[in-house]
Computed example of a mutant assay.
Amino acid sequence: MSLNIRNELPEDSKRISAVTAQAFEREAHSSHTEQFIVDALRQAGQLTVSLVAVVNDEIVGHVAISPVTVSSGAAGWYGLGPISVLPELQGLRIGSSLMKTALAKLQSKGANGCVVLGNPDYYGRFGFKAHAGLELTGVPQEYFQTLSFGGELPTGTVQYHESFDATE
Rank of each mutant, 00 (worst) to 15 (best):
L136S: 04
A166I: 04
T101F: 02
N56L: 07
P82I: 03
G95T: 05
E88D: 14
A75K: 15
V49W: 03
K105S: 13
V60H: 05
Q35T: 00
S148G: 13
T33Y: 02
E27R: 06
G151C: 09
T20Q: 05
C114D: 08
Q46I: 06
N4C: 13
N112T: 10
H32N: 11
Q35F: 04
F24D: 01
Y123Q: 03
S72D: 05
H62Q: 11
L9G: 01
E34L: 00
V54G: 00
P120C: 11
V115I: 12
V52R: 00
V139E: 08
S66N: 11
I37T: 09
V60N: 00
T69V: 13
N56C: 12
T20G: 05
L147Y: 13
D121H: 14
G150M: 07
T20C: 09
K129A: 15
S72C: 11
V139Q: 10
L41T: 03
T20F: 01
V139N: 00
E168N: 14
V158H: 06
S31Q: 12
Q107S: 14
E27T: 08
G156D: 06
L80T: 03
G91A: 11
Q107E: 15
S66M: 10
V85L: 03
P82R: 02
A23F: 03
E27N: 10
L3Q: 10
H32I: 01
F126W: 07
P120S: 11
A111M: 09
G110C: 06
L98P: 06
L41H: 08
I83R: 02
H62G: 02
L136A: 04
S66D: 10
N7A: 14
R125Q: 14
G138W: 05
E27S: 10
A40Q: 09
V55M: 12
S96L: 00
V85D: 00
G61C: 02
Q145G: 08
I94N: 07
Y122R: 08
Q22M: 13
R93Y: 07
S148E: 07
E8A: 04
F36W: 12
G118P: 02
H29Y: 06
S17R: 13
F128K: 07
E25P: 03
L80I: 07
G150C: 09
E34R: 00
L47D: 04
Y78R: 09
T167V: 12
A64W: 08
L98H: 04
